[in-house]
């Protein structure tokens, strides 16, 4: 259940004045169980890369292989491919369409060939996974829910068909701080319970730092970094790539300037622990 991308390039609007090279020779391998973050400035090709993984864009050059399905073949089995991948677009709540939450969440499972009862079971489980009450929401219209609830329903709609890889495009965009926190907790718990492989595109560095094992940085369609968050976010030249540091990293660096040297942590919890350890050691002396 891995993704192997080799020398992938993609051009938009070829042979018109609007021609643009969106991806330029990308190599990327995502192994099972990894959580990979993809970051980069607007227009760096992140979304285009994601769309290739699900064969939503025609492959122009290079090769993509997802869960053993080779997309360079003339007619790859798209249904099987898309069943493997749970893809959540930006503002997924705008794709809700059915009259009831139940029908909307069952849309995916039914498309992938589940029978009615089976699909309803899957939908119930998925609504449970995103922390909602099935009996309470199943007959309601998805359009009358609150913003955060809509997004949960949209995620449930993807989880319901039991994908092996989760692909998220800006999962926390447009959510309030509490909603963001909930979303990150949800993704973390999903990784432990159901889908182990997660690919996230985000502008929010805190989010990437919080739950990704690996970070890939794109700039003008090229891969410029592919490393661990620790290594990337503690570099000095991030601004050259129009990237900001996560808040935690910023705090650690400010403290270091004041002579308080802490290990290179990435999450708020780890920073708290590091500070407590530091204080305890100082008191010990």
């Amino acid at each position: 259940m891995s993704i192997v991308i080799k020398n992938l390039s993609c051009k938009y609007g070829a042979k018109t004045p609007f021609e643009k090279l969106a991806l330029d020779g990308i190599d990327l391998t995502v192994r099972e169980g990894e959580s990979v973050g993809i970051i980069g400035a607007t227009g760096s090709g992140k979304s285009t890369l994601l769309q290739h993984i699900n064969a939503l864009i025609k492959l122009q050059s290079g090769s993509v292989e997802v869960c053993g399905i080779d997309l360079t073949e003339r007619k790859p089995d798209l249904k099987r491919l898309r069943k493997h991948i749970g893809m959540l677009f930006q503002y997924p709540e705008y794709q809700l369409f059915a009259e009831t939450v139940r029908e909307d969440v069952m849309f995916g499972p039914k498309n992938f060939g589940m029978k009615n009862e089976e699909a309803e079971d899957a939908a119930r489980t998925a609504i449970g996974l995103v922390g909602m009450d099935w009996e309470e929401v199943k007959e309601r219209s998805p359009l009358e829910l609150s913003g955060g609830q809509k997004r949960r329903v949209a995620i449930a709609g993807v989880l319901a068909y039991k994908p092996d890889i989760l692909v998220l495009d800006e999962p926390t965009a447009g959510l309030d701080p509490a909603g963001k926190k909930e979303m990150l907790d949800l993704i973390t718990s999903l990784r432990q319970k159901t889908v182990s492989t997660v690919l996230t595109v985000s502008h929010n560095m805190d989010e990437i730092a919080a739950y990704c094992d690996r970070v890939v940085v794109l700039a003008d369609g090229k891969k410029v970094f592919d490393t661990t968050p620790q290594e990337l976010f503690y570099r000095d030249d991030l601004e050259n790539f129009r990237l900001q540091k996560p808040h935690v990293v910023h705090i650690v660096e400010l403290l270091a300037q004041k002579g308080v040297v802490l290990p290179h942590v990435l999450t708020e919890e780890a920073l708290e622990d590091a500070l407590l350890t530091y204080l305890r050691e100082r008191r010990g002396k």
Partner: peptide, 27 residues
């Protein structure tokens, strides 16, 4: 974007007769 999102959820727009295709446009 919506087409892509529904395709990702397994929707297909080029199968079946006229009624099935028209229904597939609803999402």
């Amino acid at each position: 974007k919506i087409i892509m999102a529904q395709k990702a959820r397994g929707a297909s727009f080029d199968h079946g007769g006229i009624v099935a295709r028209a229904k597939a446009m609803l999402p």
